[in-house]
Write a protein that binds this DNA or RNA. Sequence first.
DNA 1: TATCCGAATTGGATCGTTCAAGACGGCGAG
DNA 2: CTCGCCGTCTTGAACGATCCAATTCGGATA
Lengths: 329, 329
Amino acid sequence: MPEKVTIATVARHARVSRQTVSNVLNAPHIVRQETRQRVEDAINALGYRANQAARQMRTGRSRLIAARIEPTRDGINGSVLDRFLHGLTETADAAGYRVLLYTATDDEREIATYDDLLGTYELDAFVLVGTKYGDPRTAWLADRDVPFVTFGRPWDALDAHPWVDVDGAAGTGAATRHLLAAGHRRIGFIGWPAGSGVGDDRRAGWHDALRAAGIDPTGLHRETEDGITEGERLTRDLLAAVAPTAVVCASDSLALGALQAIRGTDPPVSVIGFDDTPVAAAVGLASVSQPLGEAAARCVDLLTGVLDGNHETPTHVLLQPSLALRHTA
Amino acid sequence: MPEKVTIATVARHARVSRQTVSNVLNAPHIVRQETRQRVEDAINALGYRANQAARQMRTGRSRLIAARIEPTRDGINGSVLDRFLHGLTETADAAGYRVLLYTATDDEREIATYDDLLGTYELDAFVLVGTKYGDPRTAWLADRDVPFVTFGRPWDALDAHPWVDVDGAAGTGAATRHLLAAGHRRIGFIGWPAGSGVGDDRRAGWHDALRAAGIDPTGLHRETEDGITEGERLTRDLLAAVAPTAVVCASDSLALGALQAIRGTDPPVSVIGFDDTPVAAAVGLASVSQPLGEAAARCVDLLTGVLDGNHETPTHVLLQPSLALRHTA
DNA sequence: TATCCGAATTGGATCGTTCAAGACGGCGAG
DNA sequence: CTCGCCGTCTTGAACGATCCAATTCGGATA
């Protein structure tokens, strides 16, 4: 069995000192061209790889970022996180970072996990998905100057920390305008109770688009917790009350419920969901599509900016969604 | 700012040597009860956490396991991996391990990634999801004595390495028997081309169940690549040829296609899918459900067994699926 | 020729932990 | 009484990288 290749092995092979090899790796510009070449050749010939643990012990940086993988709730929205995670892994990899997973059942435990991860693994940064008003997790991290980025705006103070988000209002706005252009006038909205940043944002897009078209949105919307059953219930209610010819929903779960509710209507009531989940694609549901890969990439950009001390990079990014049109619209 | 708490800090505080603290952590039984208590008190008082990088450098073990997150293909089957990953993270955590993500677009790059992860991060083990006949990845890992477990049997040699799998034949068998009990006689099967271990296994369950009921399965099955469109096409073909009253499918994707094809039949043709994906739950599709959390837990069990040198643990585990009955069956 | 300068390189110390070997006191056997 | 052993604890070295201070060397300057 071949003995382990360390920086000393490379140094001996290239007939230079350990420090010179280290310089070739970390500060190539201060090494003479000819020497550098010799060292690089040795590295390739021996298949040397810098030992991350040793490097970390000296520098205190692990090149590891943590992301949370959530228990699959209704399984529909879970796929959003899944796609985001995949993008994150890919982009982080390209930037020389690795993604470590963790889970937590509530905020308190999640914070305990931060403490543990920071203490034992010396993580470089965290990526949080979804934040709420007065989120204790971001406060904890900020208090300790731990670098982190959220996918989702901090609704109570936009400048609190770096974030990446998708413009939900633009998405529901575009969906509504698409329906208006198709001749619809009574366009309903099924969303979440007021108070959640994301929900209010998505409703605002629909609301403002109707207003801009000279239509009064009063009475045309309903609010409920997320879920297929709830979506169906509220859509039936809305149909009975104001007979909309189209419905925009805050999520694909709600939209799937809406689809059940409108079954058999003639002409069929149009439905547009939100998130463009695989379920939507499978059942032909039109939906607002978030650029998740792009969002993940921007998160990594922001993090590397912070970690490498580039304070010139922007601290927040708002991406535009697109409309995935299918036969329900 | 408080200075870093190391093993030396704890030692000083408890008035023992560094090594004694280390022993309390790693071999408590060789430390006198009274001393141990004093050290443990100091650990708690100071909030000491062992530095993983330093430990790793000395022991060569990182307490990190790697799992691959795949690009969301059609997004339906992706959720299976997602749920598995979540279970894996949770169980690994409980066993003192963390899960590191990686991606790769093909086998060659995946192997290059193994090399990189092993070289720079000294990963303890890998979890592979899905293997095929003559898989180059498992061969590479086995060659180098890298511990790993697969979720999915190595179809060409069941004793090649530790694995966890779900009994697909039992699943399709149960589905078929359920349909038989409901009075169906002509039960079709839509699956994948012969040659894939998983596909052949799932077809065998259906085949044998029919045979056991004294029914000749000849002509009642069709094979195709996975996908909704393909599933629909083949189901139409099967309907036209032999007019089955029920169809068992090798995946939820195929089953969704089948649902499109049978629309309007009277009495409705029954359909049962495989994987119990969120999509199935959403559209009311009956499906065979894999115990993914349990599978992940068993993977961790096998790994810790290998890593801790327990060669007495079984090297493979075959779990039984259950039937999620919904209105399509 | 002596002095100085900066670029390039060197050896030693260090990060926090575990391993290997040894020190110390008490106890039982010879 | 002495020897060896066992249980308990301590000391020094090592893992593989980077940081720091010191050194070499060729060339420019006085």
